[in-house]
């Protein structure tokens, strides 16, 4: 799906936990997530702490979208 979105000319960032799969599939901008069943959260934490994590990951995602890349790139949080 990331490739088809990229193909029409829209930059796309892929947020996922298993980044090697994302690389294999062909995403260009990749941001690692927390865990498979809750990529942008962590139920072990309080709701506020979870939100802080979510903000951090999405801030990285926005940075990825604003960064020129020539090749597949993983943006660490």
């Amino acid at each position: 799906m990331v490739k088809e979105i990229e193909r029409v000319g829209i930059p796309v960032v892929h947020i996922c936990t298993v980044t090697p799969i994302s690389l294999t599939v062909g995403a260009n901008r990749i941001v690692p997530a927390i865990a498979i069943p809750h990529p942008l959260g962590n139920p072990a934490l309080s709701l506020e702490e979870e939100k802080a994590i979510r903000r951090r990951i999405l801030t990285t995602a926005l940075k990825a979208l604003s960064t020129e890349v020539t090749d597949q790139t993983i943006f660490d949080n």
Binding site: V2, I5, V8, G9, V13, C16, T17, I36, L40, L58
Partner: peptide, 26 residues
Amino acid sequence: NAKGFAAEYAIELKNAGVDAVILTST
């Protein structure tokens, strides 16, 4: 299937003037 879905909605997104996409996977 996944390719087909995305090929379809990507054009909708483009036509709607979307500048960027955040795609999340589990």
